[in-house]
Design a binder for these strands. Structure first.
Lengths: 231, 231
DNA sequence: GCAAAAGTGTTTAGATTACACCCATGG
DNA sequence: CCATGGGTGTAATCTAAACACTTTTGC
């Protein structure tokens, strides 16, 4: 009944946003860690680590994420368990999470073995991590359509244009500002504040997320009714 | 670097349909296995077993499912990894799959420590298996709305009424036959045959699933969802 | 013929889309 | 005043839902 040789790792695909030029549109970026030992020494890999003997999975994801990248996520959800026998020289089953980090937090200095990459232009990563990131990106794009996870990439207060930019960065297409406004207004997830984002043109009202509204699917516990997902 | 005391199990929530009375509507049922040893001796539990040292996760799910219930699924998908430290007296992380089994196959004699239960009226199960079944049911209900998994509970050829009954059993509400017909016809997933289901009233045309159409969300890897024969 | 399910047609309400247009600000 | 993004209005289109109606069988 003893099980030998199978080790359990927990890794996380962390998404954030980054504006590369001066005031260009944001793009989806993620932090990777350069491996300092075999296998795949020198390659970039997802942040992660071994599951502690008495540690819950989600706690392990938070811990390894913090230890390797020094980040704390605003959203964390299990993605998938990857366990093919040949995905690593030794037998490793990885429980992979995915997370969102606000742009300002992801801008703090990273450990020097950590670097941020554009999510759509990754080098060849260690193990099966390219596939894992692809799946996480698919889930992110999928989920932004029927939940309010986009808020996990923004500050407490934000303008509708800023929220729309998050959607546009994730979905990689432009959205009609007028229709976008109505959609989110009708969703009841936003509370208007009295503050405005002042800048080069007409000030934009700032909104705050309505925390009374139920959060979407953080795993097996919540109960939603009947939603649609694109295929 | 060694990891001690954490064992990896693979379990599966298996759904099928059962007509209880003479020609009543089908309900969703699932097979459970009575535990013959501690912990939770005597309680009903999900079929499963330990992950083999060189065994892929999906293969382990198929194998343990076959070994404990003698069933072969028409659909198999990873559900979630449950790993809370206190979910079992010893540390066990369970990779849970969920599966569909056609009604005729589920009617074959089960091993005598296996029994079928109505999915909505379960006794208190071993470990956290009640929660797991709840989540699998939620996923099934969710997924039936945007994919064609319902076909996994039917024979090769079926009438629209039979397909609708599957939806109604899963969603636990009646659907308008006229609108249901149009929806599935427009989805392009059905191929009409020249056969008819003859019975007490006007014969109903039989349809076949269009295997050219891609199914939604089958997990991260480019693998097929509908399994052919027992693996 | 009658009952009941198979199958078609139509109407309505709501959501999505496209886009015209006004508003408010910095410069 | 002008350029630009903020914000509103509206018509066309698409979809889901409700339900009346016709068709075809067993009895």
């Amino acid at each position: 009944m003893t099980q030998t040789g199978i080790r359990l790792a927990v890794s996380t695909v962390i998404f954030s946003l980054r504006r590369h030029g001066g005031d260009t549109r944001p793009t989806v970026v993620l932090p990777l860690v350069r491996r300092t030992r075999d296998p795949h020494e020198g390659r970039w890999a997802l942040p992660g680590g071994w599951l502690g003997a008495e540690e819950n999975l989600e706690v392990a994801a938070s811990r390894t994420l913090r230890e390797t990248t020094d980040l704390s996520p605003s959203y964390l959800e299990q993605l998938y368990a990857f366990g093919d026998a040949d995905r690593s020289p030794s037998r490793v089953v990885s429980i992979v999470y995915w997370a969102l980090v606000r742009e300002d937090i992801s801008r703090t200095a990273s450990p020097h073995n950590v670097a941020w990459f554009d999510a759509t232009a990754l080098p060849r990563l260690a193990f099966d991590h390219n596939q894992i990131v692809e799946y996480a990106l698919w889930r992110l794009r999928n989920k932004v359509g029927y939940s309010r996870i986009a808020h996990g990439l923004l500050d407490d207060e934000f303008s509708l244009a800023e929220l729309r930019e998050v959607y546009e960065a994730i979905l990689d297409r432009r959205l009609d500002p007028a229709n976008f406004r109505r959609q989110v207004e009708n969703s009841g997830t936003l509370i208007p504040t009295e503050a405005f984002r002042t800048g080069s043109h007409r000030p934009a009202r700032l909104y705050r997320y309505n925390h009374d509204v139920e959060l979407a699917d953080r795993g097996p516990l919540p109960h939603r009714v009947f939603l649609k997902e694109p295929s």
